[in-house]
Each structure stands twice: as structure tokens, then as C-alpha cells.
Design a protein around this nucleic acid. Structure first.
Lengths: 119, 119
DNA sequence: CAGCATCCCACGGGATACTG
DNA sequence: CAGTATCCCGTGGGATGCTG
């Protein structure tokens, strides 16, 4: 007998956490969603919103998110060109997740600081 | 003038997404939380629950989570030794997040499959 | 403005082997 | 059982430079 697990009560219905986390886990993904939550935004505006992100990565994320149907990309026929990104219905479904993440993140941070002070 | 942002209505109250995502984004973190959600679990049980994780990484994650106060580590004075990991109050606060992530992840997956079929 | 193309490297994580 | 110690490698992502 290899291993006797106490119970099989681990809630393991093939939890597709990995699927989503490889997406959300990519740098800046959640941040982009967050910054688009209030409405459409242009490329340069997003760069301004998230100064630390490089153009390359921002483009990558936006492309991925477009493919996944999380946001739409609209090229405005102006000169110079400008491109608007906007969350789709699907994309907006992430908002509760982002919010929840932020809430817990804050608690986590507070907790870490308390621990450091105690030491 | 460097850049004229249309409005400052980006909901940017210093969103600490990064803080939390560097934590949740680490491989297996969410999976571990998920598998601990039903109660305490031993090291080997977790390895069994998540076959793809290596002992090294599992240990790393558990240590980090312990430091952050997300779970507790209890060494049972038995022979051979066994160690129990259990979510703390703080750790349990992640459950809604994980659940939300899973839900959206599923929709995202479905969406991706539809897109592939259409092509 | 909104991007691709390239180069480069830190580091997260897998594999393997060993210990109290 | 529950780890620790090494080695090694893929890749995500930053920096820089060029274009339609």
C-alpha cells in the first residue's frame, strides 16, 4: 500500500485554478483590468496609469486578453492613430475577483507589517 | 505638456494588486489553499493532492504562507514525524477569491474553446 | 501614437539525490 | 515522513531601438 490518505474529502473537482492563474498571474494583467474597469482607455493612457509596465509587455497582455475575449481593441481612424481598449462583458466578470484580491492583499500586507514590527 | 489624459477617473487608489498577485501568482499557491480549505492536511497528503508539485516548491510555498500568517504548521510528536498544515482565519479569507478565480477561469476556458471551434 | 524586433538575464521551478 | 541541498533550464519580462 503506497499511501493512506485520511479521507478523500479534498474538494478536488478538477479545479481549473491553473488555467486562470497562468492568465491572471502574468504581470500586469489584473492591473490592466482594474484600470479598464471605469471605461475604455487608450494605449498611452494605460501606460500612464501603470508607469512600471513596458510597452512590450503591455502590448502582449492586451493581445492575449483580446484573444481571450476579455477586452476589445478598436482602432480610431485618426492621425496620429489612437487605439481604444475596453472590457467586454466577460472581462467585467473579473472585477469581483480583482476586488477580492485587492481586499485580501491589503489584509496580507497589514499582517506582514505587524509581524515585522513584532520582530 | 507631456501627456493629456482625458480624465483622471482611473480608479487608482494605489491598488495593491501587485502585492497580492506576486503571492497568489506563485505556482501552486492557490491550489494549496484550495486543498486546505476542507481542513488540516499533512505534507504527504498535499503532495498526493497535487501530484505535479515538487517537494521543494511545496515546502517553499508552505513556508511563505506560514510567514504570512495564511496557514499554521504543527509538528506532531510522532515517529515517523508528521506535520499538519491548516488554514488560519486569514487564510480562509482567500476562499472567495479562489472560488471566483475558478468560476471565471471556467468561463474563460469555455470561451477559448468556442473561439477555436469557430476557427 | 502605437506598436514590433532584439538582446539579455534574473529567477521560478523541475529533477535528482541525500538526511534527521 | 518531511524535508534540505544542488544543479540546471525555460521563459517572463526589462531595456533599447526602429517603423507605419
Amino acid at each position: 500500500m503506497a499511501l493512506k490518505i485520511r479521507k478523500n474529502r479534498a474538494p478536488k473537482p478538477l479545479c481549473p485554478i491553473g488555467q486562470c492563474m497562468t492568465f491572471l498571474g502574468m504581470a500586469w494583467t489584473s492591473n490592466i483590468i482594474w484600470n479598464l474597469s471605469a471605461g475604455a482607455r487608450r494605449f498611452s493612457e494605460l501606460r500612464h496609469d501603470i508607469p512600471a509596465v513596458s510597452a512590450k509587455v503591455l502590448t502582449q497582455r492586451l493581445r492575449e486578453m483580446e484573444e481571450r475575449g476579455v477586452l476589445t481593441r478598436r482602432v480610431m481612424p485618426t492621425s496620429p492613430p489612437s487605439v481604444e481598449y475596453e472590457l467586454t462583458e466577460l472581462g467585467r466578470e473579473f472585477m469581483p475577483v480583482i476586488q477580492a484580491i485587492m481586499d485580501v492583499g491589503h489584509r496580507l500586507k497589514t499582517r506582514a507589517e505587524e509581524a515585522r514590527e513584532a520582530a
